[in-house]
């Protein structure tokens, strides 16, 4: 854990947002929790990072964070990706908050495109950065139409789309942002996490908050909520698997990234969750390329 910095002279409010904006976001969070999977509109503000860089997640974090929190930020599962480093630094600066890379130690984890491998616990909040909150947007461009579909629970379009995929490929050819049904009422985009992570959404002990800054929507999955990835009886939901193990830590059940090693097809597969991988290696697990320079890079100061 990195201790929080000394409080600097502030030109901006604590956690950047003004108090009125925080209240507006907090009210939206409460309604989002009360109606799991429903996209609550909110008066998203312009943030000091571009839309697409996590403005929704940053606003959620800013609205909930306090100096007693321990903050972790990951992008693609890793703590050391540039944007994760940048956002973590932002909150260390504007919210005097301690930061960590250890999943278990964090009280707030902000993420883009992954859910950590290590199971979350009660008392933790997972904040997702969401580019497109509308699960039906790829099928229907108009917000006026999709909002009506959610209002009247008309999700036929989504099932037709999955069925067409089965007809064309013999299976549901969907990889990330795989549609989910929350408590058998609201169709919800899990954000662009790989479907590998979908099973972690349901019955999770932590609070899951989703923020889409550009699209100005907040939604939530409370702890211990029923989340079903859509499928058909004869084509049940399935997740990604790998024939390879993690080259660094030997993990067999984590989401792997493919790292290209040269121009002739040499590659290695490594855990996308950098903290999960580092902890396994620290505990003595080793994969076939355990000595690779990538393993040394987690020691780089971030």
């Amino acid at each position: 854990m990195t201790a929080r910095p000394n409080e600097p002279e502030r030109y901006y409010n604590y956690a950047y947002l003004d108090e009125q904006t925080k209240r507006m976001i907090r009210r939206a969070i409460l309604k989002a929790l009360a109606i799991p999977g429903y996209q609550a509109p909110f008066g998203s503000r312009e943030m000091p990072v571009p839309y697409g860089w996590g403005t929704g997640g940053i606003q959620l974090t800013a609205a909930i964070i306090g100096p007693d929190d321990v903050y972790k930020c990951i992008d693609q599962g890793a703590d050391d990706t540039t944007n994760a480093v940048s956002i973590r630094r932002f909150f260390a600066q504007v919210a005097d908050v301690a930061t960590t890379e250890e999943t278990a130690e964090a009280t707030i984890i902000q993420t883009r495109h992954r859910i950590p491998e290590k199971g979350l616990t009660e008392g933790q909040v997972l904040v997702f950065q969401v580019p497109q909150p509308e699960p039906l947007r790829g099928l229907e461009a108009r917000e006026t139409e999709t909002r009506a579909m959610h209002a009247y629970e008309e999700y036929g379009l989504q099932y037709v789309s999955l069925y067409e995929s089965v007809a064309a490929h013999g299976y549901i050819a969907s990889t990330v942002g795989y549609p989910t049904m929350i408590e058998e009422r609201y169709l919800m985009s899990p954000s662009p996490i790989p479907k590998f992570d979908n099973p972690k959404l349901g019955q999770n002990p932590a609070i899951l908050l989703f923020g889409a800054g550009r699209e100005k929507r907040i939604y939530a999955v409370p702890p211990y909520t029923n989340v079903r990835s859509l499928d058909f009886e004869d084509h049940p939901f399935e997740t990604q698997t790998w024939e390879e193990d993690c080259a660094l830590c030997g993990a067999q059940e984590s989401y792997l990234d493919e790292v290209v090693l040269d121009d002739s097809g040499e590659r290695m597969f490594v855990c996308s969750d950098s903290n999960f991988c580092a902890e396994r290696r620290a505990a003595g697990h080793a994969g076939p390329m355990a000595g690779h320079q990538l393993a040394a890079l987690d020691k780089e100061p971030a």
Partner: peptide
């Protein structure tokens, strides 16, 4: 206060 209320609404 909000964190307590959020926890209350979530659980």
């Amino acid at each position: 206060v909000f964190r307590k209320v959020m926890e209350a609404m979530a659980r």
